[in-house]
Structures are given as C-alpha cells and as structure tokens.
Nucleic acid binder design. Structure first.
Length: 421
DNA sequence: CCTGCCGGGAC
DNA sequence: GTCCCGGCAGG
C-alpha cells in the first residue's frame, strides 16, 4: 500500500504539468489507479488514452457551449438583444424572458402599439412578432391595424400613416379606430375594411310617387323604373340615364335593416347618391340642381318634409296651365318662385321663367320633358303669368267713365274676354 | 304712371 | 258663382 501511494503522488504532478484541469483529473481516479499497476510502456498507452479523454471532454464541453449559444441565438431573435453583449450568465435569464414573450404573444394576438415603427425595427424582429424569426414577410400582427397595412418595410416612409389620417379629420369626429379607417377610405378611396363593409348594405329605392320599391341592385331599379314607370317595356336594355333621377341609393346598416326597410320613407335621411334631392345629407356632394334648390330655398320649403319633387326650371313653365292642376297654386309677386300643393307637402320650385304657354288650352302646349326633371308621375303642369295683352282692352276702349260698358272680366280686373289677344 | 290681370277675399 | 280689390309687372 505504501508503494502505491508513493507512485500516486509521483503521478499526479505529471498530470498537472500537462495543465489539465483539476476536475478532469478527479474524474479519472480509476485510470490513475490503473496506471500505477501497469508497466512503463503501459503507462505511455494509458497517458495517450487519458489525453484523448481530455480532448473528448473538451470537445463535449465546447459542444455544450455551442448548444447554449444556439439557444441564446434563438432567444435573442425573439427579444431583440444584441448577441455580442450577452454574457453566458445571462443566457438563462434570456430564456426566461423569451418564454414570457412567446407566451404573451401567443395569448394576445392583438398587439396594437409596438414602441417602434416597422422600418426602425432591428432585423424586423419585433415586427415579425417572433413567430417567424428569420422571415422577411411583411405580415405580422400589424394586420389588425388597417392603415399600417399600407406600410411597406422596404419603403422608408409609408405613404399614409395614422397621423396623416388624423390630419384630415375634424375635431368632432370620435376618436375611433374603425371610423378613422373608414374616414381614410373615404378620403383616399381605399377599400373599406371588410368588417365594416359587411355591416352596411346599399339598396336602391324607387322615388317614383307612391312606389318606393327597394331593390338591391342599381340595374334592377333602373329596369324597374324603365318598365314600370317610364313605360319602356320594349327597350328594357336601353338606358338614356333618365332612370337615374327616379331612384336613390340608400345605405342600410344591417344591424337595423329590418327597421330601415319597414320605416322607409320616400326619401330616407340616409340617401347617398347624387342626384338626390335630400338636403339633409350635407356630407355628400350635391348636384348643381340640388345646390340651386338649397340656395333659393324659402322658409316654406325648408320646413317641409323631404318628400320633394325637384323640377327643372325649363320644364316647370312649359306645362299645362295651373287651372288644370288638381291642386292649388300660389304665385309669389315676382312669379319666379311658387309653391304647389300636391299630395305631398308643399314644395318650392325655383327658376327663371321662359316663354309661358299656360294660357293655351290644356294639352295643346308642348310638354318638354327634361332629363333633369324630378317630378311625380302625374306630370305636374305649371303656368306662368301670361304676357300682358298687347291690344286695347275694355278699359282702354271705353275709358274709366264707361266702366259699365266693359266686359265682365275687365270689370273684375281679370283677363279681358272681349278683346282677346 | 298706366294698363293688364293674377290671386284671393267677401258674399 | 259673382263681385271686387291688392298688388305685381310690363310698357
């Protein structure tokens, strides 16, 4: 036993001289013991073996470091930390952090406010949301934010940012993300987010008097008007655009479609297509006719409901005489603006008088039908104050002193019946 | 201002 | 329906 211990003491320094780590030497007690009991040539062999074991261990250690390094890389790709600055002691912490990030991302997909802009992110790590660490795809959780979809990673400055949208908004608008996107769509003619589009349904309502038919397609309503109201049965395919004036586009919120359909009035406040004569919808651009109407609107028409019939000026004065209208007419002093009582509430028509024909017998006058006319089917006929007779009348002929010789009309200050022009 | 006549009120 | 008149517009 003594000899053995001596030889052992002699052997250990030899290992230390080879600059082998202590823990390695401690790992080989059996081999060392074996070395004591072998011959000198065996000792050499054993030493070679040990060296190879050491190399093997070092290799294994290196591999383990490599594994750790790889894990760290994966983690750093998710949490965006410069790899070079990480010390090995922080690797475990990174793993924990990465796990937390991944858990957070997988449970809450709607991350709306990343602290950095897409083009500022490092290697796109954040933008990719950690799901596809090395991908260059531009699809990430940004897709929930409509305007941000526009931003192309390759573009230094996206053409439209959320801030640029807000610049166009009025202060009264609610700060709602959905409305913001919709506003941008209105302003820039972009597709409306599907989510909102589905909630609005566009219908087309016939404005023909006492009709109010609602169809889902413009072609359908046009055909309806052509065939039913305009009597163009044989030319149902042909459209000269006149039907456009007899229907309007209405937008229905599908959340309340039932209510909207059941309570549709001849002109809904939600009318949405020119030429519409609703003056309530100030958002929509108006046609020139509508502008004129609004501009010259009298208090009467302003207070009237929206069931209006807009008549173009060059049409209103070339129709049947007012005496044939089954309603009452009221002419204003200047004769260029008058209201009419029909089945609908009073409406004000404005325009510049043209050559009047209302003094002719009913039906003899030409009834020019303008395409810019909006009227109810019973062709409203209007008269204009007839031109004063050129010839002499009773008053002029007989004089004021012979008033009893006048014709009755003249005595009554009506149109002379004796000396008719 | 004169004249023609519309709209409307009174009866 | 008859009678009358205020008031507008053209000349």
């Amino acid at each position: 036993m003594c000899a053995t211990s001596i030889k052992r003491e002699m052997t250990f320094p030899a290992f230390q001289q080879e600059d082998v780590k202590t823990d390695i030497s401690q790992k080989l007690p059996d081999q060392q013991f074996l070395l004591f009991t072998t011959k000198e040539e065996d000792l050499k062999t054993a030493e070679t073996k040990k060296t190879s074991r050491i190399h093997e261990y070092e290799k294994e250690n290196t591999r383990s470091v490599c594994l750790l390094e790889q894990k760290r890389k994966v983690v750093s790709s998710n949490i965006d930390v410069p790899p070079a600055r990480k010390s090995p002691e922080e690797l475990d912490m990174d793993k924990v952090t990465a796990a937390m990030v991944l858990t957070s991302l997988s449970t809450s997909p709607l991350v709306r406010s990343p602290p950095i802009r897409p083009n500022e992110s490092l290697n796109g790590s954040w933008k990719e949301g950690g799901f596809v660490p090395s991908s260059t795809s531009s699809s990430g959780y940004w897709s929930w934010n409509a305007p941000s979809d526009q931003s192309n990673p390759s573009t230094p400055s996206p053409p439209l940012s959320a801030d640029s949208f807000k610049a166009f908004r009025t202060p009264s608008q609610p700060d709602d993300g959905i409305d913001e996107a919709e506003t941008s769509n209105l302003l820039f003619d972009e597709p409306i987010p599907r989510k909102r589009k589905n909630s609005m349904k566009v219908m087309f309502k016939c404005l023909w008097k006492n009709c109010g038919k609602v169809l889902s397609t413009a072609a359908g309503i046009q055909k309806h008007i052509r065939t039913i109201h305009l009597g163009r049965v044989g030319e149902s395919d042909y459209s000269d655009g006149e039907e456009d004036f007899y229907y309007t586009e209405i937008r229905l919120n599908t959340d309340s479609v039932a209510d909207g359909l059941s309570s549709l009035s001849p002109v809904s406040p939600s009318l949405a297509s020119p030429p519409s004569f609703s003056t309530q919808d100030a958002i929509r651009p108006e046609t020139s006719c509508a502008k004129t109407e609004t501009k010259l609107m009298t208090p009467l028409s302003r207070s009237a409901p929206t069931n209006l019939y807009l008549v173009h000026t060059d049409h209103a004065y070339q129709a049947t005489p007012p005496v044939n209208i089954p309603g009452s007419t009221k002419f204003t002093p200047n004769g260029s603006s008058f209201s009419i009582s029909w089945q609908s509430p009073p409406v004000t028509f404005t325009g510049i008088p043209v050559s009047p024909t209302h003094n002719r017998p009913a039906g003899s006058g030409e009834q020019k039908q303008s395409h810019t006319v909006l009227s109810s089917p019973p062709r409203v006929a209007f008269g204009l104050r007839k031109p004063r007779g050129e010839g002499k009348k009773c008053r002029k002929v007989y004089g004021m002193e012979n008033r009893d010789m006048w014709c009755t009309a003249c005595r009554w200050k009506k149109a002379c019946q004796r000396f008719i022009d």
